[in-house]
Design a protein around this nucleic acid. Structure first.
Length: 293
DNA sequence: TTTATAACCTGAACGC
DNA sequence: TGCGTTCAGGTTATAA
């Protein structure tokens, strides 16, 4: 579920209720997330005010004087701000209660999300091993065509894999990688190193454009994404190729094709996104199922 | 160093 | 209706 626009939507939703508020309690109902949740968190966090709520890539960061809490929503995670005492539902794994009477509640059915602690004594949270190798923020000036062109040199992997590689570009998951490649008229299987500087400029501009548009719409709700106030995202109404297999291309009318690339569903228009430089391996799996035709 | 793959886990959708 | 199978929006560790 949550790609960068969904995480940004979550950040904007929780910020007014959480920023500068004092944590009164931490409740861990099920600490078996992607990595075990630190059982001493309740002791570490109780009584501390949240100094800053921010985002780095798809990680939400809650800074306190003792350290920073890193929250990742994984594939099915959801953060809600609710009045303390709200009935607990299935898959509500972690609560942070605040002095203003609200609770920040993590619900994550698949438990691919994570809640991690970075103590202040270990320096800036940017040094955390999960953040230190992340690419520049996609909406910052540092993420530009020149940067991306350099990153694609000598890389024979399919460009879609690189767009989704957090060391090269952060924020674009499967949905937005498919959409930005369609907008750039680049086949997802194109060898990264075959891209020209101009194509890199166009692709980077489209990654930014698609992420900004999705943020404006409150993210994309395919199955279960909800912002902290319980509203769905509306970007799904603007998807050109993702999950549109078999439907006509919005530009030329050619049926959208679906292949499996690096274990992920990839959608493209075979006419608008012609494959000029295919990688030598592996061959993608072309599926006839899930074509929506 | 780069790339591919398995793994983590649950629930919805689908086929029989 | 019920059961079994497949697939899903992310990311890391490991192997080749």
């Amino acid at each position: 579920m949550p790609e960068l626009p969904e995480v940004e939507t979550t950040l904007r939703g929780i910020q007014p209720k959480v920023d500068q508020q004092t944590i009164t309690a931490v409740i861990i109902r099920n600490g078996s997330l992607r990595w075990p949740v630190d059982k001493t968190l309740p002791k570490k966090l109780a009584g501390l005010p949240v100094l800053q709520v921010s985002r780095r890539g798809k990680y939400l960061l809650l800074k306190t004087e003792a350290g920073t809490l890193l929250i990742h929503l994984g594939m099915s995670g959801n953060l809600r701000v609710l009045p303390i005492g709200t009935v607990v539902k299935k898959h509500d794994h972690v609560d942070l209660e605040f002095s203003n009477g609200y609770v920040l509640r993590l619900n994550d059915p698949r438990r691919f999300g994570s809640v991690l602690w970075h103590p202040a004594c270990e320096g800036s949270v940017e040094n955390h091993k999960l953040l230190s190798k992340l690419a520049p923020e996609p909406l910052s000036d540092a993420f530009n065509g020149g940067y991306f062109f350099e990153k694609t040199r000598n890389r024979k992997v399919a460009i879609k894999s690189l767009v989704m590689n957090s060391a090269v570009a952060v924020g674009a998951g499967n949905i937005y990688a498919n959409e930005s490649l369609f907008m750039s008229q680049i086949h997802p299987q194109t060898q990264a190193c075959s891209l020209s500087r101009k194509q890199c400029d166009v692709l980077v501009a489209n990654i930014k454009r698609v992420l900004e548009a999705a943020i404006k719409q409150g993210g994309t709700t395919l199955k279960d994404f909800m912002s902290p106030d319980g509203k769905p995202g509306y970007f799904v109404q603007q998807l050109n190729v993702y999950d549109q297999g078999g439907k006509p291309c919005t530009v030329c009318g050619t049926p959208i094709e679906r292949i499996i690339l690096n274990q992920r569903a990839s959608y493209f228009c075979p006419k608008c996104q012609k494959l000029k430089h295919p990688p030598k391996s592996p061959k993608p799996t072309k599926l006839t199922k899930k074509t929506n035709a």
